[in-house]
Simulated scan of single mutants.
Amino acid sequence: MIPVVPRAAAETTGPEDRSMFRHSRIAAASLLAALAAAPATARPGGSSAESPTATATVQASLDAQYEALERQAARLAAAYEKAIAARVAELAAADPTIAYLVDKNLLSAEALTRGLPTDPLARVPWLRTTLARVDERAKKMAARFGDVTLRQNERAAIRALVAIARAQERYRESDTDGNGVFDYAESLDALALEGFEADDKPGYVRRHGYRFRLLHGDVLSWSAEALPLEPGKTGRRFFFIDERGQVRENTGGPAGASSPLAPEQAEEKPASKHRERN
């Protein structure tokens, strides 16, 4: 039997959906009219010899109408799925975070349409609702993922600075430059650190959303900084470290020797043999 869609459901859908639901109601009305016009013996419980023929005629008409509705629903569903994929592509092109989520199949059209109803007539309103919520869902997921990535970048920057401090200690103790003086390296290149990439700014290298630079290095001291590539996006905090091996942070701009210690510092092993200066 053709399902009759409640008026309230039709009012929450688009023009094409309402057209389909209107046809559904028309088909249902046709069923009632056909049954009313059929002889009493053609209705359920009838016993005339004409009953099988009349019933078959009504059923064939209903089947044809229902199949037409299913075909129309399938076309609409395909159009909505295409629209969802197109919108996801637009959002991904405009936001690298969303592009990453799409690439990992966390926010792809396929991921968004998981749980799609098997009933052809139920797919259309389901897909239309999904399309209407694509932007909102993408924004929320990007924000959550962005916060996680940002924190991961900050922690990675702290670990990188601690690694630089340890490399400086090794450089000094082994007289790596062979000049007979136990001094610190004057550039990050001299430390031959792994995992860093070249940066477009002279003297800097980059890693995990941060750029790093050795500010100075001599016989007695050295210092380095870590700056987010895009403040607020790849990291909120700026970091600083020196021969004391303690990472300091600041949120309003570059950190320095007098900036507060980063809370994560306690999780790292001491990076220097130097004692804290008063």
Rank of each mutant, 00 (worst) to 15 (best):
E230T: 15
L32N: 14
L127D: 00
P270A: 08
T251Y: 03
T129A: 13
L112N: 03
A79V: 12
A8D: 10
M141D: 05
S174L: 13
L229S: 06
A143S: 07
L106V: 05
P96T: 09
Y204G: 08
Y210G: 00
R22I: 07
A266V: 07
V102C: 02
N250A: 10
G115Q: 04
D95N: 13
V205M: 11
G235C: 02
D189Y: 13
S272Q: 03
E50D: 14
A111F: 00
S174E: 09
R211F: 05
L106I: 08
G252S: 12
Q246W: 08
A89H: 09
A143G: 06
H23Y: 14
S61W: 13
R137W: 08
D119Q: 07
P6M: 08
K233M: 12
F240R: 00
A190Q: 11
V181Y: 11
R133V: 07
D177N: 14
A36L: 11
R159N: 12
E264K: 00
E50P: 10
L121Y: 01
A54Q: 13
D200R: 13
G178R: 01
P117Y: 04
V5R: 07
E268F: 10
F240T: 02
A99I: 06
L127P: 00
T13Y: 01
A86E: 08
M20V: 08
E16Y: 09
Q72A: 15
E268T: 06
S48G: 15
E194L: 14
A198V: 12
G245A: 06
A226Q: 02
G252D: 09
A37N: 14
A42M: 08
V219Q: 12
R151N: 09
R236F: 02
Q59P: 11
M1G: 07
E70G: 14
A33I: 14
T149K: 12
E70C: 15
A64N: 14
S30Q: 15
L69E: 06
A37E: 13
D200I: 15
M20K: 08
T41S: 14
T149C: 11
A160L: 01
I26E: 12
I2N: 04
Q168Y: 04
E230F: 14
E81R: 14
Y171K: 01
E173R: 04
A9W: 08
L261W: 03
E249H: 10
E136Q: 13
D189N: 11
E249F: 06
Q152P: 11
Y171L: 03
F240C: 05
V102M: 00
R128A: 03
S174P: 11
A92H: 03
T97N: 08
D135E: 12
G252T: 07
L35E: 08
Q72M: 15
K104E: 03
T97L: 10
A157K: 01
G178C: 03
L32P: 02
A190P: 04
A10W: 02
G115L: 04
A262Q: 01
V5E: 09
K82E: 12
E186M: 07
L32M: 15
L101Y: 00
R207Y: 11
N153C: 03
L112Y: 02
L214S: 04
A271P: 00
F21S: 04
L116S: 07
H216K: 15
M141S: 10
L188H: 00
L127V: 08
A122W: 03
I2Y: 04
H274I: 06
A226L: 03
L121W: 03
E110L: 08
L69C: 09
G115R: 00
L107C: 04
S187E: 07
M20D: 04
